[in-house]
Amino acid sequence: MLDRIIQQFGLQVQSINGVEDSHSSTIYKCTLSTSENVFLKFPFSKLKYQREFEAYEILKGRVSVPEMLDYWSGDEECHGALLLSELKGKTLTPAATPKIAYQVGVLQAEMHSISPPAVLTTITNEFPNWSDFVKDQFYSFAEDVKAILDEKLYEKAINKFENMRQHLPSPDGPSFVHMDFRPANIIVDHDQVSGIIDFESVRFGSTDIDFTKLYRDFLSCDVNLYHAYQEGYKSIRPLIDLENVLPFCQFTDAFNSIGWCKRRGIEKNALFLEENLVRLKNWLL
């Protein structure tokens, strides 16, 4: 299939390497005969392909993202493929400076400033029923989590979810939300943020869901990064009360991630599963 897509896009390829830290899609970095790097992405499902395709159409010229150079809508054997330009740099790490954190805040706020267009084809606007969307996601994963947690811990998790969600503030939106806004999807080139990648899970909804993974893997590492990020975000649009919302989002993220690991394979995702079991038990015990 890879050879077929390379031929489909008319690429003259020098070398091909798989991309790590892609938990869903299959991605290859291709160095062309011109020494230019491009990326071939094979989304996990047809829906994810369609979401990503539509996201690039919506974000083009508004948020710093790769350029969609070409695409193929797929057939019975393949969900589809995207040919994407390279954002220069490497993925974000906690070693970044407050200057970078400020830019990350600006980038996310620019994305959150995008409202639903008049016509959507695949990306859904969940904002009008946001509370139900969050609840449905939680209970969908609960079916998988139940097979992993002991009964008492599972019951504690359900009770905590129901209690916490009763005290949430009103949703903030409708905004374009990434749903996987984490350091591995943010590209940094020296002292500049190049942009963001990976839009196969995007929705229009409340911004609260988008801070969780960034805080977990980046902002919580250094209070200076956290403060700089907030200043960058607030330079574009108002920021919700993170202290009030993050506990609920962190708890549900740990719970849902356990369910995700069960669906995608416990052995293959053993480390991620263990990390989230520890997080969930810290919330419950």
Rank of each mutant, 00 (worst) to 15 (best):
I187F: 07
M68W: 13
L120I: 12
N125F: 00
G265A: 06
K88P: 09
Y102R: 06
F44A: 12
E20F: 10
L277C: 05
T97L: 13
L277T: 01
A101H: 07
K281G: 04
L120D: 07
S33N: 12
R264W: 11
S140R: 09
Q12S: 11
D144G: 00
K60N: 15
D21R: 15
Q8W: 04
L168C: 00
P247L: 09
D132N: 15
A96K: 10
Q14L: 12
K152E: 14
A254N: 06
A95V: 08
D180S: 02
C30H: 00
P171F: 10
N129W: 12
L285V: 14
A157G: 01
D75Q: 09
N129T: 14
S45T: 15
S131C: 07
N185H: 13
M111Q: 12
P116F: 14
F127Q: 11
R62I: 06
G61I: 14
S170G: 11
I187K: 08
M179D: 04
L92D: 00
G195C: 08
N224E: 13
I148M: 06
S140Y: 05
K29P: 02
D210L: 05
L280M: 10
C261V: 07
I209S: 12
I5Y: 05
H178L: 04
D253K: 03
G105Y: 08
H190A: 05
I187R: 09
L242I: 10
R4P: 00
A142H: 01
M179Q: 05
V177F: 00
